[in-house]
């Protein structure tokens, strides 16, 4: 998605500057990607403090390893991949998360409380999505999705990566990405059904 033909991307220029040791180059890289990385971490972890911590770890890891980054993928893809791995590790460390995770696929009995939508007078979902409150609701719903599927959902439907890119990042076949992503979307639809 970051590919835009043969001309170098601005980020690539930043990368070159960093490799040339220009002062401030890495700060510029962080500034260019921090919103995306932080948002991804925040949605993966459903916790702002943890998201901030992980996002910092992602950039620290990037700082250590940028020398070996071969630009086979866009820098953003590389950063989000690091973020996804870090978030999954953090989630696995949480002992309390298991009870909150959705067990799907279809037909399984819910063992979690039903999603409580906001008051119906708040209007249609496409308008609500722009509302911060709706964003919180959606993020809470995302938090109920199995983490291994959640990050596929975020990469695909929030970050806009293709199946192939996700497969490459996750190291799984494209068919698996498709099936897991479909199940995740259906699970999220179920959770949001009272709203949408």
């Amino acid at each position: 998605m970051d590919s835009n033909g043969g001309s170098p991307r601005p980020v690539d220029l930043l990368l070159q500057a960093f490799r040339q040791g220009k002062p401030g180059a890495f700060d510029a890289i962080v500034l260019a990607h921090q919103d995306r990385v932080y948002a991804f971490c925040s949605r993966m972890l459903s916790d702002r403090e943890e998201a901030l911590d992980i996002a910092q770890e992602v950039f620290l890891s990037a700082y250590r390893n940028l020398g070996g980054f071969r630009e086979e993928a866009a820098l953003a893809t590389w950063l989000l991949r690091i973020a996804a791995n870090r978030c999954l590790n953090r989630i696995r460390q949480r002992s309390s998360l298991a009870a909150r995770e959705v067990v799907f696929p279809d037909g399984a009995e819910r063992d979690y409380p039903l999603f409580q939508p906001p008051a119906p007078e708040e209007g249609r979902p496409d308008r609500i999505a722009e509302n911060r409150e709706m964003a919180k609701i959606l993020e809470r719903a995302l938090g109920r999705i199995d983490p291994d599927s959640r990050w596929l959902l975020l990469l695909s439907d929030v970050e806009g990566f293709t199946y192939e890119e996700i497969a490459a990042m996750a190291g799984i076949p494209v068919g698996t990405v498709k099936s897991r992503l479909h199940r995740a979307r259906m699970a999220l639809r179920k959770i949001l059904a009272p709203v949408v």
């Binding site: 921090q34 919103d35 995306r36 990385v37 932080y38 948002a39 925040s42 949605r43 996002a55 979902p125 496409d126 999505a129 722009e130 911060r132 709706m134 964003a135 959606l138 993020e139 959902l153 439907d157 929030v158 806009g160 979307r185 999220l188 639809r189 949001l192 949408v196």
Partner: peptide, 14 residues
């Protein structure tokens, strides 16, 4: 509609 919601999530500021 779920996808619309997801794709319409604000980016947010770090």
């Amino acid at each position: 509609e779920t996808l619309l919601l997801l794709r319409g999530l604000p980016q947010g500021k770090a």
